[in-house]
Nucleic acid binder design. Structure first.
Length: 458
RNA sequence: GGCGCGGUGGCAGAGUGGUCAUGCAGCGGACUGCAACUCCGUUAACGCCGGUUCGAUUCCGACCCGCGCCUCCA
């Protein structure tokens, strides 16, 4: 089984060849924790969670790190505005982030490193860069000297001059060259800071990922992921720092970037203010519906997010779960996925829409149990559940999916169903319909079948 | 200005040089006391103009339109 990955660095789909097949190393850029995350932040989490699951199906061990950025000017600003300490604010939103992501059926990464726990490593990396002539100190700042790196800009495919021509920001006076970026910057007394050889200050944004990868995963990793908007400057700069600090050693073998979530054709972003938080979506839809919506397009393409998309996702999931519910008596187990078209689709640069279409094909079989042998049904159901599991889908009990919170007392529904059953036996069809209507008004839909009446919430 | 992505049926979304994506929605039928689920059938698409080809949605070229990065951003 071979995995193919589109590599941003080469702009081609490539065969994935791990550094060490016994242990895959993957890093994904996590959030800066100063508010609730929006659905655009959730896309890479779900996408790379799916990749994590897929890699786990192929290799014995996968180390997946996803960081938390808990020191940053945006956090400092939010803390001042809200009158809270930085630590309090960042740990609160880090926790909320964890809760939201768990609702989306994402697995906990192997490592969740925090930036502020790695200041020493960052300082060491700055030192290494200065020693190698790739960084310089100026007015309390330490800057990376991009001209000291011959192929700076290669990842994002742009030339230095071109970038500066289009630049919309003024170049700080202490920079030797406009493209140089901050490794360390000074802090005022009322700002958070750490003491260093270059004075009390705090790290530049790009540095943490480089330092944490070095510490937890090593000089070279297999996969580095994140949103497309991170390609430049974040990943370009990470790459520059790490490679230069490590005497040119390759930093990342496969760079992967997901496309944007759009609203009405425009990129969703915090700065545009056109975002939907995961939290508000979760108030209206189960996490699995949101996850399904995120996986309904291939990860590199844009995805227009709308309530219509969520409705369609819900309907699709209903129909898949309905097939599973129909075959409740078939107990699924482990099965070989290798030849399954859905699995092959996932291995082809995570073609989740194609894999989902395969789920529907499998459901079609389950919906006609009388036409298949028990063995065929067993295999079909097992395949469906396993394929679903690779995408973090279909893992709920069908009954729970349709009936919602099991904590809630549902005996009144059962009672009403029993009363209707009696009315039917008595041929009191008007009364039976009345009960159906009453339940419908409360959002309960009844489904009669040979085995009796089932119910679900709308 | 530089670099890049995309335009597929009502909606979402794969894919391919020549029979079908798939799902949601719609329509017709079956099942049902009614309904829902499901099943069967069905409608409908490849931005525009040229070129290559026996044949192009798929390859090539021009054009139009939309979007993104170059600044914090997933």
């Amino acid at each position: 089984m071979t995995l193919k990955i589109y590599n941003t660095a080469t702009r081609k789909k490539e065969l994935f060849q791990p550094i060490d097949p016994d242990c895959i190393k993957m890093y994904v850029c996590g959030p800066t924790v100063y508010n609730l995350v929006h659905i655009g932040n959730a896309r890479p989490v779900v996408v790379f969670d799916t990749l994590f699951r897929l890699l786990n199906s192929l290799y014995p061990q996968v180390i997946y790190a996803r960081n938390i950025t808990d020191i940053d000017d945006k956090i400092m600003k939010a803390a001042v505005e809200q009158g809270r300490s930085i630590g309090e604010l960042s740990s609160y939103f880090a926790e909320q982030y964890g809760l939201d992501m768990a609702e989306l059926n994402t697995l906990e990464p192997t490592i969740v490193p925090y930036a502020t726990d790695h200041i020493d490593e960052m300082l060491a990396m700055i030192q290494a860069l200065i020693e190698r002539g790739h960084a310089y100190e100026a007015e309390g700042h330490v800057l990376f000297d991009v001209k000291s790196m011959s192929d700076y800009g290669k990842l994002s495919n742009r030339a230095l001059e071109d970038m500066l021509e289009g630049a919309r920001v003024e170049v700080a006076s202490y920079k030797r060259y406009g493209g140089d970026f901050v490794l360390w910057k000074p802090s005022n007394d009322d700002e958070p800071g750490w003491s260093s050889a270059w004075g009390r200050g705090r790290p530049g944004w790009h540095l943490e990922c480089s330092a944490m990868i070095e510490k937890h995963l090593g000089n070279t990793i297999d996969i580095h992921g994140g949103g497309r908007d991170l390609i430049f400057p974040h990943h370009e700069n990470e790459l520059a720092q790490s490679q230069c600090a490590h005497d040119g050693e390759q930093y990342v073998r496969y760079w992967m970037h997901n496309g944007y979530i759009n609203i009405d054709g425009e990129k969703m972003s915090k700065s545009l203010g056109n975002f939907r938080t995961v939290r508000e979506l979760l108030e209206r839809y189960p996490g699995e519906v949101i996850r399904f919506a995120l996986l309904s397009a291939q990860y590199r393409s844009g995805l227009d997010f709308s309530y219509e998309l969520l409705e369609q996702s819900k309907s699709s999931l209903d129909s898949l779960y309905s097939a599973l519910r129909k075959t409740n008596t078939v107990i699924a187990g482990a099965v070989e996925l290798n030849d399954n078209p859905g699995y092959i689709a996932l291995l082809d640069d995570l073609n989740t829409p194609l894999a989902i279409s395969e789920l529907h094909q499998l459901a079609k079989i389950l919906n006609k149990p009388e036409e298949y042998s028990e063995q065929q049904l067993f295999e079909t159901k097992a395949t469906m559940l396993q394929l679903g599991s690779l995408m973090g889908l279909l893992q709920a009990e069908p009954e729970a999916w349709f009936q919602g919170d099991t904590d809630e007392d549902s005996t009144w529904i059962e009672d009403a169903i029993a009363a209707r059953q009696q009315a039917k036996l008595d041929k009191q069809y008007a009364r039976a319909d009345e009960i159906r209507q009453e339940l419908k008004a409360k959002g309960i839909v009844l489904e009669d079948s040979r085995e009796g009446t089932k119910w679900r919430r709308e």
